[in-house]
Structures are given as C-alpha cells and as structure tokens.
Computed example of a mutant assay.
Amino acid sequence: MVERLEQPELDALWDVDDPVGSAERIAAAASRPDRPELVRAELQTQRARAFGLQGRFAEADALLASLEPATGILHVRIVLERGRLLNTEGRHAEAVEMFQEALQAARREGDVFLAVDAAHMLAIADPARGEQWTEEADAELAATTDPRILRWRVALRNNRGWSLLEEGDAEAALREFDRALEAAVEYGTPDQRFAARWAVARALRSAGRAEEALELQRRLAEERPEDPYVVAELAALTGAAPTIEP
C-alpha cells in the first residue's frame, strides 16, 4: 500500500486551468477510506490549493488548519500551500516566509520535488532574488535522476525567462527560454514543448530578430493553427490587426 501521495496520481488529478474540477477530483480521491491517512491528508492540501485558485481563501485556510498539527511531509505541504495562498492574496512578504520554511523543511525530509517547488515559488514571490532562488532550485535537481522531478527545469527556466523579459533584457530571457526548451524536449510534455518553442519565438521578437521569430511562429501555426497566442504573435510580427495582448 502506498504510504504517501505519489506525484503521478496528483498529476492525473490536478489541472491548474480547472481548479473547480481539480478540487472535485481530489475530494473524491481523498474520501476513499482504504487510503492511508497521510495520503488523504496530502490530497486535502491540494484541495486547499484548488480553493485558493478559486479565490476561496477562507475555506482553503480552514482546510489546512484542520490538518494541523503536522510533521514530516505533511507539514511541508501545509506550509507550502499556505505560502501559495498568501502569495495569491498579494501578501508577498508573508508568503516568502512560508516558502522559506517549506524549503528548509523539504530539505530536512530529503524531498527534492517539494524543495524545488518551494524554491520556484520563492523566485515568483521574491523577484528581487529571483535568480538566486532559481539557481537554488536547479541545484536541488542535482540530487535526482527522476524524469518527473527533472521536469521542474522547464518551469524554472521559463519563469526566469519571463522575469527577464519583463525587465527588458530580451537576450538574457532568450537564453533562459532556450534552456527551458532543452528541458522540455528531454523531460516535458507535448504542451510544455509547444509553449517553450513559443516563448523562444516571443523573446526573439523582443530581441529584434523578427524574421527568426516569424519563421518559428509559422511552424507552430502549422501544428496548432487556432492557438490564440500563436495567432497574436503572427499578427504582431506581420502588422495584422491584433487579437490578444502580444
């Protein structure tokens, strides 16, 4: 019998674009009486995360509180999800404290996946030290050969790339997006590989390399002609009427 929540099961239940459906699927999985208590509790932390994405902050907080006091991996997950709730509410300084606690607790437990998750959230909540947190997260990955955990490199480098692009450093952003694409090719899902190629093209446009960007976006359009982000970039690159914010 599984003694803790395994990531493949959570991947199957969780869809960040569908927090309502995710909460329902997770609740059903957590209600099974044959599951170990720790697994049911871990699932409830993810249900709280889904509540947070719906703006149901009080319910999410109460659900996490109902799981305390906690130790070990459950403590890591509770603190991590409290940080996510605080960050979503715009309480970034408090969120950073939670994520730092989650990072240290995950390291004590030897859980690379959750340590990287905490560090990647620190890079989001604490952008002034975004590079530091990204590198710390990447360093955690040296301890594993698990492809599912190594997939974190896609998100880490993608997030760092967008931060740099927002700061106006298109060339540095392009380097990060290239690294995200390399990771996506090796460890990512088809959607991640598509999104990583799109991000490279987007950075190419900002770097003044419009012809290369247009060529790549056209190739992406052959695969997914109705993709709104590809359509928007093609409009931006060809002078057509814009569709969505480029």
Rank of each mutant, 00 (worst) to 15 (best):
R224S: 10
I149V: 15
R148P: 00
A195Y: 12
R107D: 11
G208E: 13
L38N: 09
I124Q: 05
P33S: 00
D178Y: 01
L156Q: 06
R202A: 07
A102C: 09
A155H: 09
M121S: 10
L204G: 08
D138Y: 12
R209T: 03
A196P: 10
E59C: 06
R32E: 15
N87Y: 09
G188C: 07
P36M: 04
A93F: 00
I73N: 10
A139G: 02
A123I: 03
L181P: 00
R108L: 14
L63H: 02
D178I: 04
A172L: 11
D191Q: 11
A125S: 12
P8M: 12
A123E: 08
A65K: 08
G55H: 07
N87C: 10
R151I: 09
A155Y: 11
P19V: 04
T145A: 14
E167P: 01
V231R: 15
P242L: 15
A203F: 06
R224L: 08
V16T: 07
R4H: 14
L114T: 07
I78R: 07
Q192D: 13
E211K: 13
R49G: 02
D227S: 04
V230K: 07
A106R: 06
L181M: 06
A221V: 00
L114P: 08
A58N: 11
A118G: 08
E182P: 00
A207E: 10
D126G: 01
A195E: 12
L122S: 07
I26P: 04
R56H: 09
E94V: 02
D178F: 00
A118C: 07
L64Q: 03
E131A: 14
